[in-house]
């Protein structure tokens, strides 16, 4: 059994535009080579009734996300959160973030860190 995670990332994915800023911000921060990094953005086109569709982007933390331990210790936001173009990411204690799920289309990630 792993330890209980304390910190996480809350994403309001309704507003994620798939801009890739989080992905590149993490790559820059930790000098990851292309193809690796702490967070990956994926595009999903959801099929709905009546020939309708919903275009969704989702940032997903990877095995490499360390929740920016160094930055957050200094009181800074993680690099991805700082740069998110849609300001739809939030870093914090999982218990606090859970209370902020006050609208639909949100997801709370507890990365491996």
């Amino acid at each position: 059994m792993s330890r209980k995670p304390e910190y996480g990332l809350l994403i309001d994915y309704e507003y994620c535009t798939g801009c890739y800023a989080c992905q590149v911000a993490c790559a820059q921060e930790y000098e990851w080579p292309a193809g690796m990094g702490g967070i990956r953005v994926i595009e999903i086109v959801e099929k709905l009734p009546n020939d309708k569709h919903y275009l969704k982007f989702m940032p997903i933390p990877t095995e490499l996300c360390i929740l920016c331990a160094g930055r957050t210790k200094e009181g800074k936001n993680p690099a991805c959160v700082h740069h998110c173009m849609a300001a739809c990411m939030k870093y914090g204690k999982i218990e606090e973030l859970a209370k902020e799920i006050n609208k639909p289309r949100m997801v709370l990630w507890a990365p491996k860190a």
Binding site: Q23, H82, H83, C84, M85
Partner: peptide, 20 residues
């Protein structure tokens, strides 16, 4: 390179082109 949180245009945010 980081987005300047005090700038009125982007308020800290930055696109991938600039972050690269």
């Amino acid at each position: 390179i980081e987005g300047d949180p005090d700038h009125p245009m982007n308020r800290g945010r930055l696109c991938p082109r600039c972050l690269a």
